[in-house]
């Protein structure tokens, strides 16, 4: 399979997976292994001084997985830029999943702030993967601002609703010059497969695996779905037709 290239990073796996919400860190580690991923997202938060838990980094083998810090929880460009800069201090790879939220209840992205932050972070040398709406105009603007990948949502974060507007994603894919990763909304394997079948370059997900009854099995299902979807895309699906078309010869039927 051809590699996925984002900035200077290269991946065999087209699945990006989160580190949040798992039952425990052991299960998370095993789910990562089962998913075949090569990149895992993390968030940045204040250390808990009263009751410092075991650090997440002990459960991520950085020789196997590239850590992709996100700016989740940021509501302004300024906050997101600060978070990205702090992540850089942690000696993580120089890339960032830029996420600037505009509404607490829906967690919908603030595209204006995301664009502002993209411009500044690109100037500072970050490889920016920008989370945004499934909207062609936002995606184009982020690409023009220098994002190395644009990540339109399939559905709201953590909602598991699947790819709500496949046509929007198709239009984005048609016009994109950078890899498009469908981020958010993937609830089960078929959602991931659909994203890949319509030509997405990758899928980023967290909740669909982390909150599945069996995270490890779901992680494997996502891996297989993404491989199947990618192959189906490359193979080229047949057009949909209204009427039947026999698969067996219509001639020579014994009477």
């Amino acid at each position: 399979m051809e590699k996925l290239k984002i900035g200077n990073f290269e991946f065999n796996s087209r699945l990006f997976i989160g580190t949040g919400k798992y039952e425990n860190l052991d299960i998370m580690k095993k789910a990562h292994e089962a998913s075949g991923t090569e990149a895992v997202t993390v968030a940045l938060r204040r250390v808990n001084l009263e009751n410092e838990k075991e650090n997440l980094l002990n459960y991520i083998d950085q020789n196997k997985y590239k850590i992709l810090p996100n700016t989740a929880g940021c509501y302004t460009a300024e906050e997101a830029i600060r978070t990205a800069r702090l992540a850089r201090e942690l000696k993580l790879p120089d890339w960032v999943k830029l996420e600037v939220i505009g509404d607490k209840k829906t967690l919908m992205p603030d595209n204006e702030e995301t664009l502002k932050a993209t411009k500044i972070l690109v100037k500072e040398g970050f490889t920016v993967l920008a989370y945004t709406n499934d909207d062609i105009v936002s995606c184009k603007k982020l690409e023009e601002a220098g994002a190395s990948s644009v990540m339109p949502l399939g559905a709201p974060i953590g909602s598991g609703q699947g790819i709500l507007n496949q046509n929007n994603i198709k239009i984005i894919l048609e016009q994109a010059k950078v890899p498009i990763i469908v981020d958010a909304g993937v609830g089960t394997a078929s959602d991931a497969a659909i994203a890949m079948e319509i030509g997405a370059d990758g899928v980023l997900l967290n909740t669909g695996v982390a909150l599945a009854k069996d995270s490890i099995k779901m992680a494997r299902a996502m891996k297989l779905a993404i491989e199947a979807g990618r192959d189906a895309y490359l193979a080229g699906r047949i057009p949909k037709k209204l009427y039947a078309s026999a698969s067996s010869p219509t001639e020579g039927i014994s009477k």
């Binding site: 989160g18 580190t19 919400k21 798992y22 997202t41 993390v42 997440l56 942690l90 953590g158 967290n206």
Partner: peptide, 10 residues
């Protein structure tokens, strides 16, 4: 002083 670290996230 602000001290941050990596935690689980998506």
């Amino acid at each position: 002083i602000e001290i941050v670290t990596v935690v689980g996230g998506g």
